[in-house]
Write a protein that binds this DNA or RNA. Structure first.
Lengths: 197, 197
DNA sequence: GATTGATTTCATCATGCGATGAATTGTGCG
DNA sequence: CGCACAATTCATCGCATGATGAAATCAATC
C-alpha cells in the first residue's frame, strides 16, 4: 500500500517502455478513441501527465504505439517475387504469420479497431489498401488489378474481423495451416480466375 | 433568423420522427459512441433535452433507431427453402438487396459501426452470427455447420466492410448483379465444398 | 374563455476527457 | 557536498458529454 509519493522513483524502472506497452494493449483492445490517456497511465501505474511528458499529445502516443519493425512492402516481397502461381497461398502465409505473432498483432489490431473512426478509415483505405495491396497487384501484373485486389482485400478483411477482432469460433482457434488451406484457393481465384461482367 | 423561442411550436411538426431520422443517420455515419445526443438534436433542429424527453436514455434512442421492419429469419427463408443447390447465390441476393436499400442499410451500418465497441461486438457475435447465420446453416443440413457458416460470415463481413463501410472502389460502385456473380461461387464453395483438415 | 396537458427550451449537474504548468523527489556529475 | 537535470505527481483549465427538473408556450377540450 505504498502511496505513490511525488518525484522521481528509486531504481531505474523503464517507465517509458511500460507506458508504451500499456498504450499498445489499450489501443489494440479498445481502439483509439475508447482508450483514454488516463487509462493508459493507470495501466502503467503512473500519473496521466507523465504520458504527455514522454509522448506529447495522444495522437503522438498512438503513432508511437503503432511503430512496427516490419515493413509491409518488404514482408510481401516473396509473394510478388514468386509470380502469379501460388501467390494466393504465399500471400495468406505472410498474412497469417504476421497476425499470429502477438508482437505485430497488437499494432495491427489497433489500426483495425479504428475501422469505425474517420481517421482510421482513411488510414485503412489510403494506407493499407492503396499503398500496400495496390502495389502487390501491380507487381503481379494482374489485369484489372484494382478490382482483383479489392476483392482479395475484402476476403482478408473478413478474415481479420471474424478471427482476430470478433474472435468467432471455430475460426478464432483454427490452426494456421488449415486457415491457409481454406482461404488460399479463394484468394487465388480472385487473383487469376475469370471475373464476371 | 427566427430565434427559436421557448415552448411548443406552431403547427403540427412531427418532431419525434425528425429526431429518429437524425439519429438513424448519425448512428449509421458515426456509430454509437461517436454520435452525441446533442448532435442528433442539432441535426433535428431541436434542443437536446427533447431527445431525452421522447426517447429516454441514449441507449433507448439507439434501439429505437435500429428498429427494422425486416425480420432476418423471414428474409432468409427462401435461401434455406431452396436447398443447398444455389444457396450461395440466393443468400447473396438477399444480402445485397437488403444492403442496397437505404431504408435498411442505415440501421445495419449503425450496427456494423459498433464493430469496435464491446456492446457492438456482442451484438454482432451473439446476435447476427449465432441467431441469424447459425440457424441457416442448420436448416441447410450442412456437415460441420459452424465452421462453414463462420467462413461464409467472414466473406460477407469483408464485403460489408469494404463496400459499405470503407466504400473502397471499385467495389463500392460495382453493380449488384456483378457482385452476386463474383461472390456466389465462393460462398457456395464454403457451403458445400471440400474443407481441408 | 379557462383549464389541462403535450411540447419545447433553459439552466444546471456531475463526469470524464486531453492538456498544461508548477512543485517535488530522485540520480548523476563535478 | 552541491548543483543541474530528469522523472514524477498535483492541481487545475476548458471542453464535451449524458442527464434532469423547472419554466414557458402552444393546442385542444370543456
Amino acid at each position: 500500500m505504498s502511496a505513490p509519493r511525488r518525484g522521481r522513483r528509486p531504481g531505474a524502472p523503464d517507465t517509458r517502455a511500460a507506458i508504451l506497452a500499456a498504450a499498445r494493449e489499450g489501443f489494440a483492445a479498445s481502439g483509439f478513441s475508447r482508450t483514454s490517456v488516463r487509462s493508459v497511465a493507470a495501466a502503467a501505474g503512473v500519473d496521466a501527465a507523465l504520458v504527455h511528458h514522454y509522448f506529447g499529445t495522444k495522437d503522438d502516443l498512438f503513432v508511437a504505439a503503432l511503430a512496427l519493425r516490419v515493413d509491409p512492402r518488404e514482408a510481401l516481397l516473396p509473394v510478388v517475387e514468386g509470380g502469379l502461381d501460388g501467390a494466393g497461398e504465399r500471400l495468406l502465409r505472410v498474412f497469417v504469420s504476421v497476425w499470429d505473432d502477438e508482437e505485430t498483432r497488437l499494432p495491427l489490431l489497433a489500426v483495425v479497431r479504428g475501422i469505425a473512426e474517420p481517421a482510421g478509415q482513411r488510414l485503412l483505405r489510403d494506407g493499407v489498401m492503396r499503398m500496400v495491396l495496390g502495389p502487390v497487384g501491380e507487381a503481379l501484373g494482374l489485369d484489372d488489378a484494382p478490382r482483383r485486389m479489392t476483392l482479395v482485400a475484402s476476403q482478408l478483411v473478413g478474415l481479420v474481423v471474424v478471427r482476430y477482432l470478433l474472435a468467432v469460433e471455430p475460426l478464432a482457434s483454427m490452426p494456421s495451416e488449415q486457415l491457409v488451406a481454406t482461404y488460399a484457393p479463394v484468394v487465388q481465384g480472385f487473383l487469376d480466375g475469370v471475373l464476371p461482367g
